[in-house]
Amino acid sequence: MTMPYISRHPLENRLPLEPGIRAVDHMDVPRGTAIATVMAMDGEDAAVAAGLAVAGDMSLRFVAPGEWLAVSQSDTPEGLCRNLSLLLAETASVFDQSDGRVVLRLSGPNVRRILAKGIGIDLHPAVFEIGTSSNVLCGHISINLARTGENEFELIVMRSFAESLFDDLRLMGREFDLSADFSAQG
């Protein structure tokens, strides 16, 4: 049977680490997440930001001025791109990145200390607040880091760097017995 390359998750060889074991600090890897880049046309930054603010069913990640990642758990990649294109029409370019990026969710009381081993920014909730996101360097890999809760972070990494980042995170989390598995929701 032939399988298209993209139907295979890049961490298929690594997960689950130890089946059934879930430590307090856990890395959750959703298999199917719809991700799209949104880039505002010249001078349309404010209009696109306003449009995205009212778009439901997706979360936004800040990348750069006039550039965002839209992430949706419930929508399909095609649906997400269609909705965004209709919403933003001529003011922005929307491109599907669902097969090109991998999402890793870290949660637990020690995740801040785990991430601090590879990330050079202040992760205190008073500085990096819940709901904020930014591109940062983790070790030598550029990722998009978002804080989704007091002790919850979401990392978005390019597909080809996913295995390398996964290995780095395992090493960073070994002190706290970081566990990892695919997300139960799929």
């Binding site: 990348v63 750069a64 001025p65 550039e67 930014s134 591109n135 940062v136 360097l137 550029s142």
Partner: peptide, 17 residues
Amino acid sequence: PRGRYREHWQHVAGCRR
């Protein structure tokens, strides 16, 4: 120069600006 210098820096791992 030794002293003040204006340089282009690109934020390659961040906003890429």
